[in-house]
């Protein structure tokens, strides 16, 4: 069934939130979380991931998807490893906040599912991301006006 999707981004593009009537997705730019070509979490990243975890709690989410993506530079295999490692690191950070009743699906998708054009750096930057998705909770407030 077709649904309406609301998308709100930080002005700098570091974080992008999508809401439908069923799901909430936070796309965090890789640059904000990790150094180039690395999956070592930067210190500032913890607070941002913690905030997403808080939103998941607000929505009473018990199933969370953590998916990593890269741009199309480098080999597909390298992208697969990097994106999976990055998703793993974000997952590790999420479980610090969230309880043991939450289950996760953690995957790396390499350069698949780009959201912007890989032919320029601005687009590639958007494609390098980790997405955290969870179902919208019944208890959460007015669906289409997120980020208040």
């Amino acid at each position: 069934m077709v649904d309406i999707k609301s998308v709100v981004e930080d002005l700098g593009g570091e974080e992008r939130r999508s809401d439908t009537s069923t799901d909430v997705t936070f796309a965090l730019q890789a640059e904000v979380l990790f150094p180039k070509d690395s999956h070592k979490l930067q210190p500032e990243a913890a607070a941002r991931i913690k905030a997403v975890a808080a939103e998941a709690q607000k929505n009473n989410a018990t199933k969370i998807r953590v998916f990593g993506f890269t741009d199309n530079l480098g080999t597909y295999e390298h992208g697969l490893k990097l994106s999976k490692n990055r998703a793993d690191m974000v997952h590790r950070e999420l479980i610090k906040t969230l309880g043991s009743n939450v289950t996760y699906e953690v995957r790396g998708y390499s350069e698949d599912y780009p959201i912007a054009d890989n032919s320029n750096e601005e687009g590639r930057k958007k494609n390098r991301r980790v997405e955290i998705t969870f179902p919208r909770g019944a208890a959460s407030g007015s669906g289409s006006t997120p980020g208040t």
């Binding site: 077709v2 649904d3 309406i4 999707k5 609301s6 998308v7 709100v8 981004e9 930080d10 002005l11 700098g12 439908t20 980020g147």
Partner: peptide, 10 residues
């Protein structure tokens, strides 16, 4: 400091 993108369907 937010950008509200055009609404779209799925």
């Amino acid at each position: 400091k937010k950008k509200y993108l055009v609404l779209r369907d799925t």
